[in-house]
Design a protein around this nucleic acid. Structure first.
Length: 309
DNA sequence: AATAAAGGCAACCGCCACGAC
DNA sequence: AGTCGTGGCGGTTGCCTTTAT
């Protein structure tokens, strides 16, 4: 007898999630916590497969997700980590706790790959680092920058693995007090941009009535005219879900994950790398013997490092 | 202003790893 | 030890938006 499909294809809805579905999912997770995805569709009445629910949560709805443009810092970290780890997006994402692996993967595929390709064709040599073309630099200089970026990776890792220490490096990623609010904000943002026709304007909850029918797109950081509605939406969400209790139910469960990841320690994403035993890379990144690292980096190229690992 | 092409991103698919039984 | 169920991951697709003509 073969293994049954993870979800039977019939009656399973696909495609973009609607705000109603998001609400159902979030409210369920608020109550039960993430995990046991198999039970989610059954218990929520969502016509989605468990995988789809998990993906939606981890990539979009979970608290602490930062969306929008990648900073220079993040970009460099991705470039270096990709060089070191390859396309292990989940591992890379563990160094950037606020980003999802999907986001990073997309960013790599759509932006960085092209950027690096351009650099490769545009200049011989140091193309893999992502900043040599516009700023040609001597090898030593380039490696110093590499060291700096590796240091940044260290910082991120240190934070991710050290919940007791709010921040090993106070100036790095802010230990934002991510709460369920983050999730409602995520949804509110989504709703602002939800311009497609609402399938059923008469939704099951009164508070949702205002959420349908938003008529314009608003991408990250570009508030659009939608936003009277958007405001109402986020208010509606906040009134819908008392996220404080949700937060407190998770806030004391931190283990070896980043502060925000610890809020959802059962959840898959952020700790995927963090919970594993330290890899060689992580040990290396953690190694506070700065001189060692310096010497090491000083003597080899990033290609060598990639081979080393 | 209309249309085509390119870009960007959310979501899906299939495989794999791991734990439970 | 082998099988099954579940969750995780990376690659890919398809739709929507933006830009160019």
């Amino acid at each position: 007898m073969g293994r049954p499909p993870c979800c039977d294809k019939e009656g399973i809805k696909k495609g973009p999630w609607t705000p109603e579905e998001d609400i159902l999912l979030v409210s369920y997770i608020q109550e039960h916590g993430p995990g046991n995805w198999r039970a989610v569709p059954t218990n929520t009445g969502l016509l989605r497969c468990s995988k789809s629910c998990r993906l939606r949560w981890t990539n979009y709805l979970r608290p602490g997700i930062k969306r929008g443009n990648f900073t220079d810092h993040e970009e460099k970290m991705i470039i270096h980590l990709q060089a070191l780890l390859g396309n292990r997006w989940a591992a890379i994402a563990s160094y950037l706790p606020q980003r999802t692996d999907n986001d990073i993967k997309n960013y790599w595929n759509t932006h960085l790959k092209k950027k690096l390709k351009k650099l490769q064709t545009g200049s011989e040599g140091h193309s893999r680092d992502g900043f040599s073309a516009s700023q040609p630099m001597a090898r030593g200089q380039w490696e110093r920058r590499l060291q700096t970026d590796i240091h940044m990776a260290k910082q991120a890792l240190c934070e991710a693995l050290s919940p007791e220490k709010p921040s090993c490096f106070p100036n790095t990623i802010p230990a934002q007090s991510s709460t369920y609010a983050s999730s409602t904000e995520n949804i509110a943002r989504l709703l602002k941009g939800w311009k497609r026709n609402s399938p059923n304007p008469a939704m099951t909850q009164n508070s949702l009535n205002n959420m349908s029918g938003t008529d314009s797109v608003s991408s990250e950081g570009t508030p659009s005219k939608a936003n009277d509605n958007g405001f109402e939406l986020s208010e509606a969400f906040e009134s819908l879900f008392g996220f404080e209790s949700f937060d407190s139910s998770y806030s004391d469960t931190s283990q070896s994950v980043s502060p925000e990841a610890s809020l959802f320690q059962d959840e898959s994403k952020p700790e995927s790398g963090a919970q594993l035993p330290l890899s060689s890379l992580e040990k290396w990144l953690f190694d506070e013997g700065a001189n060692q690292g310096k010497d090491f980096l000083g003597d080899i190229t990033i290609d060598d490092q990639a081979n080393f690992f």
